[in-house]
């Protein structure tokens, strides 16, 4: 509900730009026209949102699992972690957008390359934030585990992990906002369904209204995902 006011302001601003600039509808369609297009293509948008949503959620879950595992692994086995770190950095130095066509070439036009791109986008920020959280345990708490002569695993489980849960929550929220970028990037380079595919097709046919409608559905999808991870974040903090 708190979001209602800023959204209304944005819509008014949008309408004002359309009215004042006199831009033709195929360049910048007015909000009501976009709403119309959304209504006319409700079935297509819903089906596309389901596809993209499935890609995003699957990619997010797999990416989160991979990111968390990498972070945990680097803490529990520091020497292997030191070996792994440059490789991780290297994987992030490769622009995903450039890699996406190759993935499509290898994995086809289906849902799999989109999930892979999402995983690639999601896992690094999550692994990095969670790893930092696991390493930022207050020294005083670590003193307790040293005095108890705790093993690495017990220290991890009782001290490091609980202290790092808030940063895991923060990492998940960031990942949730990035994840749709991954899925749409994947769809952009080759797809037969999904919101990215709809936007690309509509744009090619100068249906700016449908492009905008698909974009707004994508934004809504991202916001829902964000709200869900915020809820998880609050739970991890408590």
């Amino acid at each position: 509900m708190r979001a209602a006011a800023p959204i209304l302001v944005l819509l008014a601003l949008w309408q004002a730009v359309v009215s004042l600039s006199g831009a033709p509808a195929f360049i910048l369609p007015p909000p009501l026209m976009v709403l119309e297009a959304a209504k006319d293509n409700a079935g297509l948008l819903a089906a596309s949102a389901a596809v993209t949503g499935a890609e995003v959620v699957t990619g997010l879950i797999l990416g989160a699992l991979l990111g968390c595992s990498v972070a945990v692994f680097m803490v529990l086995a520091p020497s292997l972690g030191r070996f792994l770190r440059p490789i991780l950095l290297l994987s992030q130095a490769v622009p995903v957008f450039a890699l996406a066509p190759v993935l499509t070439l290898w994995l086809g036009y289906g849902i799999v390359p989109k999930i892979v791109v999402t995983v690639m986008i999601v896992f690094f920020p999550l692994a990095s934030v969670f790893h930092d959280g696991l390493m930022a345990t207050p020294e005083g708490l670590l003193d307790l585990s040293r005095l108890a002569r705790a093993g690495r695993w017990q220290e991890f489980r009782r001290i490091r992990l609980p202290s790092a849960l808030p940063s895991l929550g923060a990492g998940l929220t960031v990942a949730a906002v990035y994840a749709p970028i991954g899925a749409v990037t994947g769809e952009w380079v080759g797809a037969s369904q999904g919101l990215g595919y709809v936007m690309l097709m509509a744009n090619a046919r100068s249906h700016a209204d449908l492009t905008f409608a698909a974009l707004i559905v994508l934004v809504a999808l991202t916001l829902v995902l964000y709200a869900a991870t915020r809820w998880i974040e609050r739970w991890l903090r408590s």
Binding site: L144, A148, R149, A150, G151, Q154, E155, R158, I159
Partner: peptide, 8 residues
């Protein structure tokens, strides 16, 4: 009980 928990 933390000490005992840490020692497993």
């Amino acid at each position: 009980e933390l000490g005992q928990r840490l020692r497993g």
